[in-house]
Structure formats: C-alpha cells, structure tokens
C-alpha cells in the first residue's frame, strides 16, 4: 500500500460496544414525566423527601431546574425513576382524581424564606376543592398587605400540584398565571371541584 494510513481517522473510528454506567442513587434523584397537566420534573433527596415537582415544558427549562437543584441541594443529581416511585404514583392518582392528597414527604430546599411561610400555610388552610384569592391567603398568613408578594411566592412554587398553589386565584375569581399554564390550572380546579362534589354526595369515613 502506497497511501499512508490515516491514523487519526482509524483511531476515531474505534467504536466498541459500550453501555452507560450504572450508578447508585445519590444526593438527588429525578425523573421527567409527561403528565396530563404537562411535562413535569420530580426530584427527591436521598432521604426520599420530594424537593421538586415542577413544570419543565422543554429541555431548557429542565436544565434550569437541574442547575438550581445543583446549587441549592447538591450537584450529585442522577436520573433514577425508581427513587420517585411513591411521588409518581401519588401524582398520577391525584391527577386521575383517584386521590385527594399526598403522603410523600416534602422538603422546601428550593424555596425562599418567604415561600417557607406561604407554601405550608397554603397547604394547611386551603382544602381540596376550595379556592382562595391571593388577598385571602395573605390575610390567613397574617400578612394582609402582602397579596402581591404571596402571588410571587406561589408563582415560583417548587412543589407544584403537591403544594396546591393552583387553588389560589385573583380577587375577581379569574385564573391568573400558573407555572403549568392556565389550561393546567383549569384542569386541576375542575378535577377538584368534581372530586369534592363526589365527596359531598357520598361522604366517606
């Protein structure tokens, strides 16, 4: 052979059969699911507590959320669907109207100080099937002048659906902005209205 062998190309063509690594669960596990209300990312810590339940309409939004998790919790973040089994099952049941509450433990690591007041307050005071206005929630939280700040805190809710920020509406009852889009908010409110009506019609223990 007279032609010199193109060695770099020959090395570059090296393509053994390879497999992705199998890594154990680490500090943060996550999964991305297409749900009836949109594409959602669920993430939990190594102790099983849910740190994120958030709408990620595209991979850019997914990357932004992962970057926040990396900064706020740990960069040791791996895709491990099995670690999210409980949260996924509960979310699926909730969205299908088969259940009205979540038992999965939550962790507000992604929340601001103010959100740590607002989100638990919301979860404790506005029940399934009910609605509150931003002003009412602000008053319930004993911050009657903070309706706007409450709105902002809910808008950046890191635990969508699980912490029911969809139950909070404008003072005229209008469905205002929702991270998952207004169609998702409407779906959730309609779902809960039907569920609550069923509950009233057939009271259970």
């Amino acid at each position: 052979m007279n032609d010199p062998v193109d060695l770099p190309a020959a090395f570059a063509a090296f393509s053994p059969a390879v497999h992705p690594p199998l890594l154990p669960t680490s500090d943060v596990s996550y999964v991305v699911d297409d749900t009836v209300v949109g594409r959602m990312l669920l993430a939990s810590r190594s102790d099983g507590a849910l740190v994120a339940s958030a709408y990620v309409p595209d991979t850019a939004a997914e990357d932004r959320l992962l970057a926040r998790l990396s900064t706020r919790v740990s960069p040791r973040i791996l895709r491990h669907p099995a670690a999210l089994d409980l949260a996924r099952r509960e979310l699926e049941d909730f969205l299908a109207g088969r259940s009205r509450r979540f038992t999965v433990r939550t962790d507000l690591a992604l929340a601001s100080d103010f959100q740590r007041v607002v989100l638990p307050g919301l979860a404790a005071s506005v029940e399934y099937g009910r609605r509150a206005t931003y002003g009412e929630l602000a008053t319930l939280l004993q911050r009657p002048t903070a309706a706007r700040a409450v709105g902002a805190a809910l808008g950046a809710n890191p635990l969508c659906v699980v912490v029911p920020c969809h139950r909070v509406v404008a003072s005229d009852g209008a469905l205002t902005g929702y991270a998952g889009g207004l169609a998702a908010k409407r779906y959730l409110l309609d779902l809960e209205m039907r569920g609550a009506a069923t509950l009233r019609a057939r009271p259970q223990g």
Binding site: P21, L66, R79
Partner: peptide, 19 residues
C-alpha cells in the same frame, strides 16, 4: 462553582469515557 447536574455529564460523555 456552578457545577451542572451530574446526570448532564453522564449523558454528554458516557460514550467517550467508555471508548
């Protein structure tokens, strides 16, 4: 240091590491 999520590294580089 803002490190990307480790999964991002796995997805981007696992083939190169394996090769």
């Amino acid at each position: 240091v803002n490190l990307p999520a480790f999964q991002t590294l796995v997805d981007a580089h696992w083939r190169d590491v394996a090769r």
